[in-house]
Design a protein around this nucleic acid. Structure first.
Length: 341
DNA sequence: GCCAAACTATCCTTTACTTCA
DNA sequence: CCTGAAGTAAAGGATAGTTTG
């Protein structure tokens, strides 16, 4: 079990957005322009650690560039004068990222949650300003299912936590650990399926989409990679354990077989007069065949019924995948290998 | 071209917080 | 309500690769 790793180029979109109909076109219908300003992520840098400053550098680097259209999402920007596609409303998105569907408002304008349609409500992902989430959602709870309401509350909590975190950071206090919302986690998870590492642009794009700091996205991917590795280690461990058990059992069986052969040799001395027999393994089927060399020099590969030999009556196949099976099968039989012992 | 310092990204370990049984 | 286990966000250090002067 291996994770496919695709380190695409920076312009490569997240393919899951195309593949996942739930998240594609209609739902994730927004594009993003990274321009000169990053008001949400720009903050004082003197309190930041080394990692933090790295990402601040990233932000500065991007920020200093001319406005950059990221094609991380399913459709391209709508040309001036064209009808904008419908847009999804992520609760964690700020109103400066998403504009109302069909609205002529440019992104960056305010968003009125009261204008949400029922469809939007059913998506359970109404947009709101992170600073006014509670009041906005309260307006809508009357028409929401309990589950949607719960999700909304979770989103609000996440937003509040994020807001608290930012405030704390700005105040120089230690940032409290926040819990990512289910939507944020799911989105990150989908991103991880596409790329288990991020380049700076992807990181920034994800951070902006999810209203997280780039450092949070980075840390999430780090921890996610660690979880994947841990899981893989557990799987490997389990496999090796099974292999060990199987081999132990096989060893036990072969020891028993050896004892039986020795007993047979003692009771039937004429056995020693048989022609020399060697065991060879068939490279294609990985089974043992018996090759007997006669006194005249001709060799014959024999296939005998295992049931005629007491030493093989209790043979059973190993369950190890793709491992050589060192025991006689139906078309080959192990003859007593009576070396001088 | 070589080298050392700085920078950057990632991994690993640990801590602290949250959730849940 | 308390508690321990599990999950996970986050911090900090180590390391390796890259860039720069």
């Amino acid at each position: 079990m291996e994770l496919a790793l695709s380190l695409g180029d920076t312009s490569k979109p997240f393919k899951f957005l195309d593949k996942n109909p739930k998240l594609s076109s209609k739902d994730l219908g927004f594009c993003m322009a990274l321009g000169s300003g990053f008001p949400a992520t720009t903050r004082s840098q003197d309190k930041l650690g080394s990692h933090e400053s790295n990402y601040q550098d990233d932000e500065r680097r991007v920020s200093s560039d001319p406005p950059l259209q990221l094609d991380l999402l399913p459709f391209s920007p709508v040309p001036r004068g064209h009808q904008a596609p419908s847009r999804i409303h992520f609760p964690w998105l700020t109103d400066n990222l998403v504009s109302e569907p069909g609205s002529t408002d440019a992104p960056g304008r305010g968003f009125d949650v009261n204008r949400l349609s029922m469809d939007d409500a059913d998506e359970g992902a109404a947009i709101s300003s992170p600073n006014s989430a509670a009041s906005s959602f309260q307006m809508d709870f009357g028409i929401r299912s309990g589950r949607d309401r719960k999700r909304d509350l979770e989103a609000i909590d996440a937003e509040r936590a994020s807001s608290r975190a930012s405030d704390d950071e700005e105040n120089g206090l230690t940032r409290k650990k926040l819990r990512l919302s289910k939507e944020q986690s799911a989105f990150l998870e989908e991103s991880f399926k596409e790329h288990n590492t991020l380049n700076p642009k992807q990181k920034l794009a994800l951070a902006k989409q999810l209203n997280l700091r780039p450092r949070q996205v980075e840390v999430w991917f780090q921890n996610r990679r660690a979880r994947t590795k841990l899981k893989q280690t557990e799987v490997d461990c389990e496999y090796l354990k099974r292999c060990c058990e199987t081999l132990t059992e096989e060893n036990r069986r072969l020891q028993k077989e050896l004892q039986e052969l020795r007993a047979l040799k003692t009771s039937q001395p004429f056995y020693m007069q048989l022609p020399a027999t060697t065991l060879t393994m068939c490279p294609s089927c990985e089974r043992v065949a018996t090759t007997t060399t006669s006194s005249s020099g001709t060799t014959t590969t024999t296939t005998t019924n295992p049931s005629t030999t007491t030493s093989t009556t209790n043979s059973k196949p190993l369950s190890l995948p793709a491992k050589p099976r060192l025991f006689p099968m139906s078309h080959g039989q192990v003859q007593p290998h009576h070396a001088a012992s």
